[in-house]
Design a binder for these strands. Structure first.
Lengths: 331, 331
DNA sequence: TTGTAAGCGTTATCAT
DNA sequence: ATGATAACGCTTACAA
């Protein structure tokens, strides 16, 4: 344990605790000479500032809490990269909490963030219902990324548009029997499906929606069942890349060729889909940029809360998604 | 902001702060009746315990810090899952810090953990040299996962053995021209390469080692150059699955077929390699189990530090890796 | 069982 | 520029 405290440094340097504090935060109010001396003594003693104590004592330590649903899904890594881009340039601190793929870890993770007294929370992939999210966001500002929650600051891609362009792409390629593999129908996250429905009905086609979990293997099994059914579709649109990969698996396992025999479209444009071996046509929600926007909004909310600025109304930032066509939809 | 403090709850419930504290930690020393009453008042007021204050005040809050190198590499998600399996069953708290793919974030992340006064650190994927790691582990016990650091508690697979079985598998398949794509040669992480060398020389073959970064795209470029060279190898052994995927990319981009034209072996058995579309032969270091072992060791170290138990000597736990043969090495 | 009071390691306010 | 000294919100002997 680092048992050396600010007190020790102060004594050894022959100054008061206050000066050590000022010196270590390079705040104004200490001469360059003594500051150098203090830091010198501090490092010699192996002093490491205690953030816990600092945060208890100060009201001015900005800390942003980040919730990520699932470390196995790269989209969250992308979002996190974006968040860090922005936060690293501020003097705020980051506290991370990770959920579980089935959503069972959400409550505990959020509670941990609250107990850590973060000033704002950026949540990516929360699986609770809209009203639960709103309830959670009572005391502390909450920014939802990749999911639009009414009443809550949200930063996401236009999933309806994304669902539409993906489906339209398939329709334009001549497909008429397109299955949509939808995510768990927790409240929220229904834009992609809505987009699919809009495009399908606009084209006068019959929608086929099959729900799957967020587990890739489950998706493979579900897709396999569909492929083996009496009337297999000629194309799949999966609600995200992970699921799409499961579909590719099912296809390959049956000796069929993605793109040639059955078309597949994913959603997220994770680096996985970009890999030539996979070459998955997908919708790019620009996740890193989403993370950046969310972080900026978080910083803004903290500033608002700190100052006396009246809390502005809910902000909803919507990025335009892009279709990235690859081999999985090329004949 | 949750402005309600324990004081508020105490006043409202008509008891002292001490009782509230006891009640909320469900420690002994409070009657069931008053406890129920306190919790009731607390929830009605929306009281959320302040962990920051708790940790400052108490010496008995176990917190383990976890460092993960790169959220984009699934092996770290696996390790984290294992760690959480164990920690969730204890009453320790988890603090997460994430590095950067080029290692430039290591120092800052570790410092953050120190400043948060974690009682022990589990580090997965540190890119500093052995001596730097040892220096870092001075004040706080450090468990290194997936990498054996002399002098430091380490939990990892036998990478030399892993490198050997992977290479031997290739040799047995008839390959004589096998390139090893090695990771950045920071001190440490050289077991896989050593294993490769041992197997290659034992078979009287000529080693071909090409260093790459941890970036998958870099690996693709490097592999492409090698495939296009005058004497292309018939097989690649990549230091991890990410790199192996880059190799598959290079192969596919040239119209060649992995397994048929060029064999590829990876390392980590991430869910990616398990996917039938990829079907990558790889070495399974049993990452989740590694995470579990590391967490158990961390818990042990904390207990040692808390009690007066003399700190035991450095512990090195080595798991036996397994070869998982898939299509990428099948003719 | 319940209350009192002394820390925990900082920051911040006010003197000097 | 520097030094006392109250907070910060909680835990924890020690009393009652």
């Amino acid at each position: 344990m680092s048992r050396i405290t600010m007190e020790d440094v102060a004594r050894e340097a022959g100054v008061s605790r206050a000066l050590v504090s000022i010196a270590y935060r390079d705040a104004v109010g200490v001469s360059d000479a003594t500051k150098a001396h203090i830091i010198d003594v501090g490092t010699r003693l192996g002093y490491v500032p205690n953030r816990i104590a600092a945060r208890l004592a100060s009201k001015n330590v900005d800390t942003v809490g980040v919730f990520l649903q699932d470390l196995h899904n790269e989209v969250f890594a992308d979002v996190f990269d974006g968040i860090r881009d922005i936060i690293d340039d501020s003097d705020a601190q980051l506290v991370l909490a990770v959920g579980r793929i089935d959503g069972s870890g959400d409550a505990a993770a959020i509670r941990a963030l609250f107990e850590s007294r973060v000033d704002v929370i950026i949540a990516a992939g929360l699986m609770m219902t809209d009203s639960e999210v709103r309830a959670v966001a009572q005391g502390t500002p909450l920014i939802s990324v990749t999911r639009d929650v009414p009443g809550i600051d949200s930063v996401c891609a236009d999933d309806v548009a994304g669902g539409t362009i993906a489906t339209a792409h398939l329709i334009e390629s001549g497909h008429t029997n397109i299955v949509f593999l939808s995510n768990p129908q927790t409240q929220g996250y229904q834009g992609r499906q809505r987009g699919y429905l809009e495009a399908i009905t606009a084209a006068g086609l019959e929608p086929r929606i099959v729900p799957v979990t967020y587990d890739r293997h489950d998706a493979e099994v579900a897709a396999g069942l569909i492929v083996d059914s009496p009337h297999p579709p000629t194309a799949f649109f999966a609600h995200n890349d992970q699921t799409a990969l499961g579909v590719l698996d099912a296809i390959v396992l049956r000796g069929l060729r993605p793109g040639k025999d059955i078309a597949v479209v994913g959603y997220d444009n994770t680096s996985l889909s970009q890999a030539p071996v996979i070459a998955l046509t997908t919708v790019d929600p620009h996740s890193i940029e989403l993370g950046r926007s969310a972080a900026r909004q978080a910083l803004t909310r903290m500033a608002d809360a700190a100052g006396d600025d009246a809390a502005e109304a809910r902000v909803s930032i919507v990025h335009e998604p892009t279709l990235v066509a690859r081999a999985s939809t090329a004949r």
